[in-house]
Design a protein around this nucleic acid. Structure first.
Lengths: 248, 248
DNA sequence: TAGTGGTCTAGACCACTCG
DNA sequence: GAGTGGTCTAGACCACTAG
């Protein structure tokens, strides 16, 4: 069985990974079912075995498949496949969980960076940063409060109307100024809602909330976002933890 | 400059990765400083370039370095290096943050699995599972409450004295019955402490707590742990999020 | 243009699992 | 022992970045 991969600029291993991911998502393969062996896949798609392995490692990192030495490569259980976490997860996470994501923009403004914000964004205190405050909605119900700070290039202004129409702030910033987070660090803890949180989230003062701080970094690892997020107690933050015991 | 890698059974790419990680941890390389190029590293250590690349990808997954196409490979900023998350993180995380981890064992018992627990562990309701309840301490102060369920093999009994002496429950179980989590899924939300939580954690009823549920899976992706963890509000759960936008 | 990382190959051998 | 994934090589070419 020979299948040709398109000769576009997309690397072959990603094309192959998409084919395999597609087969899994369409339900053609059951949880924990074995895939073809690496050598069989290599022959089927006329690529080298190393290229097949690259595709499988790509999918394994994303929680789609897993390999076991001497046994084979298998479809990851759906509980794992659904738990992979992305940057800009709100829109995607919500859709994946079957909800309709929404937002209510509270303010978009340019403010001088406080010492705390400046330190986190590695800029000088007093430098102008763009601050975006929003209420996040799922099925039109408030679930989270976002307060984000962005050190945008000079001359870039964010308009309320743009953000209202955009699918996501990340996509809008990517389009406007090449904003491209490569990774982020997040920090979670529990707290109690103050009166303002409570009002905006439609809960009571003193209700429990999940506080998540995020610093997003560009490809060059320059801080490009600091965002403080407060979620109601019914909101679940999900993540997948790989083994990674430092040396393995 | 030629350096020989030991010919032990440890793969060369892991040996090289450890050398690079060691140099970074010893402070021999600054944040965002460029490493030698892949070709230079290959020659220095007498390995092929693909082996160097494997070492660098290994470190990149762990947040130690990052590569930028056409520019080079660089030391990840320390904020990222400190944020990598592991399974069995409590002991390691605490030590890394400069605290002394501790535990107070509340109970070790064998109980029949409830329907909820049985579903999560993929066993039959009523099957015996080992339940371990502990208070987690940092510098002798309670910070978390763990309630873990383990479907241990028949004939394996966990003794209180064993766990008191062991460095960690995971290490003890690994030694006793080959317990080896390959990955885990975690689920976080905010809640309020009830009277029992409050007493065990040394806080007040109604104080905010961070509730974290974890299901750990073996290499074959069989559930081998369900653990419910409750942390005081000062405890911070940290994690690193890679880009992973599904197709990139 | 020179140097960097990214992709890809064909082949080899090792380590592990299972019947 | 047969089949699987894991490691490793030597070389090639492409894509990107920078001075």
């Amino acid at each position: 069985m020979t299948k040709a991969l398109s000769p576009t600029s997309v690397p072959r291993y990603k094309q192959l990974a998409e084919i395999i991911r597609g087969a899994i998502e369409k339900g053609m393969l059951a949880d924990n079912q074995a895939l073809l062996s690496e050598r069989e896949l290599a022959e089927s798609y006329s690529v080298s075995r190393e290229t097949v392995r690259k595709a499988l490692r790509f999918l394994e990192e994303r929680g789609v498949v897993y390999s076991d030495h001497g046994r084979g490569t298998f479809v990851a259980p759906s509980i794992v496949r659904q738990m992979s976490r992305f940057i800009d997860s709100f829109t995607q996470d919500t859709e994946q969980r079957g909800g309709v994501p929404g937002q209510r923009i509270l303010a978009i403004e340019t403010v001088p960076a406080s010492m705390g914000i400046a330190g986190l964004l590695a800029i000088a205190p007093g430098e102008p940063v763009t601050r975006v405050r929003r209420v996040r909605l799922i099925d039109n119900v408030p679930v989270g409060l976002n307060d984000g700070y962005y050190p945008l290039p000079r001359g870039i202004k964010l308009e309320r109307s743009e953000l209202e129409e955009a699918q996501s702030l990340y996509k809008l910033l990517a389009h406007k100024c090449g904003f491209a987070p490569a990774e982020a660090v997040e920090n979670l803890q529990a707290a109690l809602a103050d009166s303002q949180d409570a009002e905006l989230l439609g809960i009571s003062q003193g209700d429990p909330i999940l506080v998540c701080e995020r610093i997003a970094l560009s490809e060059r690892r320059e801080p490009i976002e600091y965002c403080l997020m407060k979620y109601v107690a019914t909101y679940r933050y999900t993540t997948r933890v790989a083994k990674h015991s430092a040396t393995n």
